[in-house]
Amino acid sequence: MIDYQYLKPKSLEEALSLLESYGERAMLIAGGTDVMVGIRNGKFAPEALISLRGLEDLAYIEKDNDAYRIGALTTHRMLETHPLIRSELSALYDGASQVGSVQIRNVATVGGNICNAAPSADTAGPLLALDAVAVLKGPRGERNVPLSEFFTGPSQTVKELDEVLVEFRVPAVMGEYGSAYHKHSRRKAMDLPILGVAVSLKVTDGKIEDARIALSVAAPTPIRAKRAEDFLTGKMVSEDVLEEAGKIAGEEASPRDSLRGKAWYRREMIETFVPRMAQKALERLKNR
């Protein structure tokens, strides 16, 4: 039978000390949209749930000289409705605004989306393509982990049991990039991506100065397509160049056959959507 204690610490310190004393027997819960589903399915059976919902000051979207700072408890709805995210970190807007449904987005957090570490997480690709860094706090202090090093496998991350994710930092320079994310799914709501493609580009006078390409559901974890990025860097924008980048990204990925989609189809969608998202990113840059 489903049975657990529900603890609601009032401060981060209290949360950390509860985590320490319960160890493996406890689980953090933010919006609960992954945790509760997992408990129902029998995937998790924690003795205690440590809720982060008392830590309201961890829900924020800010920008300073160095970085955009997004609190771990920021909901997808907050991201989706924040003008800064929409105009400057557009890929993240694309990802957050397509999670589940409005009801889900009102409670589900970006921290939960990343810590749950599903290969299909809709904000993972965008945050990867935006060079985000995850800030973790634990008994040994604070550490910054680039998102590209955060995921270690499906549902697995470098985050230790006694650590809490507190913030994402996106370097301020990313505001100069154009970015876009495509969620390839069969339905327009209440669906997970068969494949996700995020692209961010920095372009001057038609020349690609820097490129980031992130793929989700294309490998056991969300990944960056570095060879495709390198290929693009320094090239003049053209349809052929973008197509070629798509092909390279397709080769870099290691998608698998699953109930939700076949590997060959996923690979072709990478080839299709890397150039399409690059175009969308360029258009957004132009329209700024």
């Binding site: 449904s101 339905r187 709501a189 209440m190 669906d191 939700r260």
Partner: peptide, 27 residues
């Protein structure tokens, strides 16, 4: 276009609305 029960050796593999693609109001 979207709906199908996927059976593998007699077993229904998509017994939920996440993987059974009934259309939503947004579609």
């Amino acid at each position: 276009l979207t709906e199908e029960m996927k059976l593998e050796k007699g077993k229904v593999m998509n017994p939920n609305f996440l993987d059974y693609k009934m259309l939503t109001a947004k579609d």
